[in-house]
């Protein structure tokens, strides 16, 4: 078929309500909506500090219709371990326990707890929606911020000097049964991975690229387009990793130039052609490295 008809690929149920406090065009909000559609009502979520601490609604409101436990920044995976243990003790092994954390809560402050939970192979689903900086606090760099990016703590005179942390490799090194990357721009791929993750026992990790209009500085309506550009340019490849060892791509990555993606965002506005060429070089190098993993 010619048009990619995806409406039947997604569950009709809505576990998220309008009136939440995400910015217009928020990739993280859309990601939650899609993930919950697939996970369904029998899901308990814990959220460390992140944009969703706000999006989920201030007391006494909630924008999702599943139980949510807001928790401290570094504790997502540990709280989830506790919830899981409690449910198991009461004989409920079916309910999905999900951590919903940003990149700061995953790559940085929450990495230790995540590593602990992954090492114990806790039966939880850990989702990192990655908007590549501390957006909720006003765009400060995290270890998920890409090289060359402006943030309020990596000003144009001294932009992000380090490459983005390779969280997938870190998670794979824990030999967890299932890890995958996704983005709401590809809903079918996303929900297929959620479905897969839901069916697996043990620690499951989903790394979701969540474009952020105010943080990346682009027009709201381009959120999905930017995510697609990132995938097509191999900046954010769509992957599945089983048991930390079996890497595979879930779609084609034509290898479009990174330039349109970079140029579309204000956070990269200061990069000149030579620097963009450097971004391309780094992306190419990572891709080659990744190909090595996928080939094995």
């Amino acid at each position: 078929m010619s048009q990619i008809m995806i409406k039947d690929a997604l569950q009709q149920r809505e576990l998220m309500t309008s009136g939440h406090l995400a910015c217009p065009g928020c990739g993280g909000a859309l990601a939650m909506r899609m993930v919950l559609k697939e996970l369904g009502e029998r899901t308990i979520v814990t959220m460390p500090a992140c944009c969703w601490s706000v999006i989920a609604g201030p007391y006494p409101t909630a924008s999702v219709q599943v139980p949510v436990y807001h928790t401290a920044f570094e504790t997502g995976a540990a709280v989830a371990s506790g919830i899981r243990a409690a449910l198991d003790m009461r004989g409920d092994t079916d309910t999905t326990v999900m951590v919903w954390a940003g990149d700061g809560g995953t790559f940085d402050i929450g990495l230790q707890a995540l590593s602990g939970a992954a090492e114990r192979n806790e039966n939880i689903l850990y989702v990192c929606y990655d908007n590549e900086a501390y957006m909720n606090t006003g765009i400060q760099r995290s270890s998920a911020t890409p090289w060359g990016a402006w943030t309020t703590t990596t000003p144009v005179a001294q932009p992000q000097a380090n490459p983005k942390k390779d969280i997938m490799a870190i998670m794979a090194a824990h030999r967890i049964p299932y890890a995958a990357t996704a983005t709401p721009a590809y809903p079918t791929d996303l929900v297929a991975k959620v479905r897969r993750a839901k069916s697996v026992r043990g620690t499951r990790f989903l790394h979701i690229l969540a474009p952020c209009p105010p943080g990346w500085k682009y027009a709201d309506e381009r959120s999905m387009e930017l995510a697609r550009l990132a995938v097509r340019a191999r900046i954010f490849p769509m992957l599945e990793v089983e048991d930390g060892q079996h890497w595979r791509f879930t779609m084609d990555h034509p290898g479009d130039p990174v330039e349109p993606y970079v140029r579309a965002q204000g956070r990269f506005r200061h990069l000149d052609d030579a620097q963009i060429a450097l971004v391309q070089e780094r992306v190419d190098a990572r891709w080659t490295e990744l190909l090595g993993r996928v080939m094995n």
Binding site: I44, T46, Y69, T71, A72, E74, T75, A77, A78, V79, A80, S81, G82, I83, R84, A85, A86, L87, R90, Q112, A113, G116
Partner: peptide
């Protein structure tokens, strides 16, 4: 800190 966090999760559940 994870010990207490896990207790929080368990207690909350």
């Amino acid at each position: 800190h994870s010990a207490m966090a896990a207790c929080m999760g368990a207690s909350a559940a």
